[in-house]
Computed example of a mutant assay.
Amino acid sequence: MMLQALIDEFENEVKSTRRLLQAVPASHIGFKPSPVSWSMGELAQHIATIYYWYVGTLTMDAYDVSADKLERGPADDIHATRDLFEANVEKARAALHSLKEEDLQVQWVMKSGDRTILGPFPRGIVVRSFLFNHIYHHRGEMIVYLRSTGNPVPGLYGPTYEESNFTQAK
């Protein structure tokens, strides 16, 4: 029951993430709101990369991020990032569908070499907190980046300000 709810949420949120990444313009890919922030391209690439982490999270009890090498392509190429996102979604979907309900209770840790970064936690908690909530957090950042550069924000949970004003003007 919990697994099916996670799968349903995943599928719904993939659509929202796709809409958001499609709204990232190549013309503002280098925008950074502060010197210590990622560029818009780096943030988009990070969002696409999180979907890759589903594989290690869902198929390994101890995921060593330092041993996992993902070819990301250049962060200043939004088309490459969108392709990365689509490829990672397919991998994530396959990993999610490979689970059984009881797999959500298995203890999971994230490591970097010998150092534990996250956990141990039941895998189901990790899916919610580390994977889903992590994406939502960075999508929120991307919305701020888009608005800061004067770009329209797509509706993820209903119409946005831009969509509402456009509709009212007609």
Rank of each mutant, 00 (worst) to 15 (best):
Ala5His: 12
Ile7Cys: 06
Ile7Gln: 13
Glu11His: 07
Asn12Cys: 13
Ser16Asp: 04
Leu21Glu: 14
Ala23Arg: 03
Ser27Ala: 14
Gly30Asn: 06
Gly30Ile: 13
Lys32Cys: 02
Trp38Leu: 05
Trp38Thr: 10
Ile50Arg: 04
Trp53Phe: 15
Tyr54Ser: 04
Val55Gln: 08
Val55Cys: 10
Thr57Lys: 02
Thr57Leu: 04
Thr59Asp: 07
Met60Thr: 14
Asp61Gly: 08
Asp64Val: 00
Val65Leu: 11
Ser66Pro: 10
Asp68Pro: 01
Asp76Gly: 10
Asp77Val: 05
Ile78Gln: 00
Ala80Lys: 05
Asp83Asn: 11
Ala87Pro: 06
Asn88Glu: 06
Asn88Phe: 07
Val89Lys: 04
Glu90His: 13
Ala92Phe: 11
Arg93Phe: 12
His97Asn: 09
Ser98Arg: 14
Lys100Cys: 15
Asp103Glu: 15
Gln107Ala: 10
Trp108Pro: 00
Trp108His: 02
Trp108Val: 01
Gly119Arg: 04
Phe121Gly: 00
Phe121Arg: 04
Ile125Val: 10
Ile125His: 11
Val127Lys: 11
Arg128Val: 15
Phe130Asn: 03
His138Thr: 05
Glu141Arg: 03
Leu146Pro: 04
Leu146Asp: 04
Arg147Tyr: 10
Arg147Val: 06
Gly150Ser: 13
Asn151Ile: 13
Val153Asp: 15
Val153Pro: 14
Gly155Glu: 07
Ser164Asn: 07
Ala169Leu: 12
Lys170Ser: 06
